[in-house]
Amino acid sequence: EPELVFKVRVRTKDGRELEIEVSAEDLEKLLEALPDIEEVEIEEVEP
Rank of each mutant, 00 (worst) to 15 (best):
V22K: 00
T12I: 05
L18A: 03
P35I: 15
K29H: 05
T12F: 15
L27W: 05
E1A: 12
V45T: 07
E25F: 14
L18P: 00
V8T: 01
E39H: 12
L27K: 01
G15E: 01
F6S: 01
D26H: 07
I20V: 07
E44N: 08
T12A: 04
V10A: 03
R16S: 05
L30S: 02
E43M: 14
D14T: 05
K13G: 04
E17C: 15
E21W: 15
P2V: 08
K7A: 02
F6T: 02
E39T: 13
G15Y: 01
E44K: 12
R11V: 06
E17H: 11
E19P: 00
A33L: 11
V10S: 00
P35H: 13
L4S: 05
I42R: 03
E43L: 15
E43C: 11
V22F: 03
E44C: 14
E43A: 08
G15K: 02
L27Y: 04
A24H: 06
L18C: 13
G15Q: 02
L34I: 12
L30M: 07
R9W: 03
E21M: 15
K13T: 06
L4G: 04
L4R: 14
L34M: 10
E3R: 13
E17D: 06
A24S: 06
E44H: 09
P35F: 15
V45W: 09
L27Q: 00
L31W: 08
E38P: 03
E21Y: 15
L30R: 01
D14W: 08
V10E: 00
V8S: 00
G15T: 01
E28T: 09
K7H: 07
E32Q: 12
E3Q: 11
D26G: 09
P2E: 05
R11T: 06
L31Y: 04
E32P: 02
L27A: 01
P35C: 14
E1T: 11
E46K: 13
R16D: 04
E44F: 13
E38I: 13
K7E: 00
A33V: 07
E17V: 15
E41A: 07
K13I: 05
R16C: 13
V40Q: 02
V10Y: 15
E17W: 15
T12C: 08
R9L: 03
L27R: 01
I42M: 05
E17T: 15
V10F: 15
G15S: 01
L31H: 02
E1D: 12
E28R: 14
E43G: 07
E28F: 14
L27E: 00
E19W: 15
E25C: 10
L34W: 12
E3I: 10
L30P: 00
D26Y: 08
V45E: 05
E46W: 14
V22L: 08
I37F: 12
E1R: 14
E46F: 12
V40C: 14
E3L: 10
S23V: 05
A33T: 10
I42L: 05
E28K: 13
K29P: 02
E44V: 14
E21K: 09
L4A: 06
L18V: 07
E46V: 12
E39V: 15
L18N: 01
V45K: 08
D36R: 04
K29A: 09
P2A: 09
V5C: 13
E39A: 11
E32W: 15
V10H: 01
S23M: 07
G15M: 02
E38Q: 08
A33C: 14
V22P: 00
E44P: 12
T12P: 00
R11D: 00
D36L: 05
I20C: 11
E32G: 09
V40T: 03
E44G: 09
V5D: 01
V45I: 12
L31E: 01
K7P: 02
E3C: 15
D26F: 09
E41H: 12
L4Y: 09
V40G: 02
S23G: 07
E21R: 12
P35Y: 14
P35R: 15
P2R: 13
E19A: 06
E19D: 05
V40A: 04
I37E: 04
K29N: 05
E17S: 10
E3H: 10
V8P: 00
D36S: 05
V40F: 12
K13C: 14
F6D: 00
E39K: 10
A24D: 02
V45A: 07
V40D: 02
F6H: 03
E46Y: 14
V22N: 00
T12Q: 04
V8E: 00
K7G: 00
I42T: 03
E39Y: 14
V45S: 07
G15N: 03
P47K: 11
K7L: 08
P35V: 14
P47Q: 10
K13L: 08
T12M: 15
S23D: 04
V40L: 11
E21P: 03
R16W: 11
R9F: 02
L30K: 01
E39N: 09
L31M: 06
E21Q: 11
S23T: 11
E1W: 12
A24W: 13
L34Q: 04
P47W: 08
E38K: 05
E19V: 14
I37G: 06
V8Y: 03
E25L: 12
E19I: 15
I37A: 10
L31S: 02
T12H: 06
L27N: 00
E28S: 10
D14P: 01
L18I: 12
P47L: 11
P2T: 07
I42G: 02
R9I: 04
V10L: 11
A33E: 09
K29G: 05
E39R: 12
D14N: 06
E38W: 14
V45F: 08
E43Y: 14
E28G: 09
E43V: 13
E39W: 15
E46A: 11
E1P: 11
D26V: 05
E3P: 11
E46Q: 13
L18Q: 04
I37L: 08
K7S: 01
E28Q: 14
E25N: 11
E41G: 04
E44R: 13
L34K: 02
L4P: 06
L18G: 01
E21T: 14
R9A: 00
V5A: 06
E17R: 11
E43I: 15
E39D: 09
L4I: 10
I20N: 00
P2L: 08
K29E: 05
L34A: 03
E44I: 15
P2S: 07
V5K: 12
I42V: 07
E38F: 13
P35G: 15
F6C: 05
D26E: 10
A24C: 10
E1G: 12
K29I: 05
P47F: 10
E41S: 11
R9Y: 03
E38N: 05
P35Q: 14
I37M: 06
F6Q: 00
P35A: 14
T12D: 03
L27T: 00
D14I: 02
S23F: 07
L18T: 04
E17Q: 11
K13H: 05
E32M: 13
E28D: 08
E38L: 13
E46M: 12
A33P: 01
L31P: 01
E25H: 12
L34V: 05
V8G: 01
A33D: 07
S23N: 10
I20K: 02
P2K: 10
I20E: 01
D36M: 05
P47H: 10
V45Y: 08
P47E: 07
E3G: 10
V22Y: 02
P35M: 14
E3D: 09
L18Y: 15
R16T: 07
E43W: 15
V10T: 01
R11H: 04
L4N: 04
K29R: 10
I37Y: 14
E28L: 13
E25K: 13
E19L: 14
E3Y: 12
D26K: 07
R11I: 07
L18E: 03
L30G: 01
V45M: 10
E21H: 12
E21N: 09
L30Q: 01
E28H: 12
K29Q: 06
E1S: 13
L18R: 04
L4C: 13
E38D: 10
E38A: 09
E41M: 12
E1V: 12
E25M: 13
L34H: 06
L4V: 09
D26C: 11
K29S: 06
D14M: 06
E32N: 12
D14G: 06
E28V: 12
F6L: 08
E46N: 12
E32F: 14
K7D: 00
E3A: 09
I37H: 09
E3V: 10
E28M: 14
R9E: 00
E19R: 13
V10R: 01
E17L: 15
V45L: 11
K13Y: 04
I20H: 02
V10I: 13
V5E: 01
E17A: 07
G15H: 02
E39F: 15
E17I: 15
F6M: 04
D14Y: 07
E46C: 12
R16Q: 07
K13Q: 05
E17K: 09
E39C: 12
E25I: 11
E21L: 15
L4K: 15
E46S: 12
E41N: 09
T12Y: 15
L27D: 00
L30D: 00
K13D: 02
L4E: 03
E43K: 10
E25Q: 11
V5F: 11
E28N: 09
V40S: 03
D26W: 08
A24L: 11
R9P: 00
D14Q: 04
L30A: 04
E46D: 10
E25Y: 15
E19K: 09
E38V: 12
V45P: 05
K29W: 09
E25R: 14
E44Y: 11
V8F: 04
A24I: 08
I37N: 06
F6I: 04
E41Q: 10
A24Y: 09
K13W: 04
I37V: 10
D36F: 08
E1L: 12
L18H: 05
V5M: 13
D36W: 08
L27V: 03
D36P: 05
V10W: 15
P35D: 13
A24R: 12
E25D: 09
P47I: 11
V8A: 02
E38C: 10
R11N: 01
E1Q: 13
S23W: 09
E43S: 11
R11Y: 05
